[in-house]
Amino acid sequence: MKFLQILVDGFAISSLYGVGAIGFTLIFGVSGVLNLSHGSIMVAAAIGAWAMAGDLGFGAVGGAAGGVAVGVALALITYTLVVRPIQTSSRIAREEKEIFVLTGTLLWGIMVQEALAYLFTSNPKTVRPLIAGVVDIFGVRTPTQEILTALISWAAIGLLWLLVNRTKAGKVLLAASINPRGLTLLGFELPTIYFWVWALYGLLAGVAGVLLGSFLGVSSDNVGQLTASAFSIVVLGGLGSVTGSLIGAYVVGYLETITAYSGAPSIRTVPVLLLLVLVVYIRPQGLMGRR
């Protein structure tokens, strides 16, 4: 019984972590950027959905769509306003770009977080569920929303897989992550590719944010935690590897769920952190890392 419960609950949360993390890893794979404003984009999407579904009267579906749109818009703003200028700046030495992008996105994330707290208070918000109610799965009473979370997560992951493996645009994307210089020789504009990668990332982060908002609820206070957890999952799976991030997401999701169910909900994240340190020591490139 408890086993089934862990199986069901862990699956939903892991799928959700997966969607959040693959966007994060995608950007790193393609453009070498660790986006520390990740959590704030997720939370902004969720709060956007909450506001549109509630006060603005767009309804549950309209709100969810609006939330995802907020995610995409914010990701593109992050890229154009913060990441791109740092990458192209002639004042910043090449070997220092990394720390500047990190600091820049971190500051940007704080700005978004503070703006959200200012406009909507730091009180947690929950996005109106698309379908309310519960379903019985082998005796485990599961909220419909939880099933929907897992389904939508996997639909998003599946679409991404199709895009990368079955379309021309996807192949370009893949090529960009392996050999950006070669791609420019073929006549592709890297900035254009980056722009679309960030849009794709925004879509994934937006979906993850809205789902999180309707499944568990979010507050602007969760921003740091969300960024840290995406970062951990991605390092665990191997920076830049989408498959690795998915595996990482399930490892983290289930490890947390098991810890929480074995009677210690307050140390939920501790085993994950220990595992992370262990993996980084033994295999710094992560489970599926290629460098």
């Binding site: 609950d9 947690p124 929950t126 568990l216 609820g217 935690q225 929480a260 169910y261 009677g263 909900p265």
Partner: peptide, 29 residues
């Protein structure tokens, strides 16, 4: 805590008639 599912499940398993709360920093979730 953001995910209270395990806590509620544990409590439900113990079959109490009522939960007596003491919450202030958390509430919505």
């Amino acid at each position: 805590t953001t995910d209270f599912t395990p806590i509620f499940n544990k409590i439900e398993g113990e079959k109490p008639d009522v939960m007596v709360t003491g919450i202030s920093h958390i509430g919505v979730q």
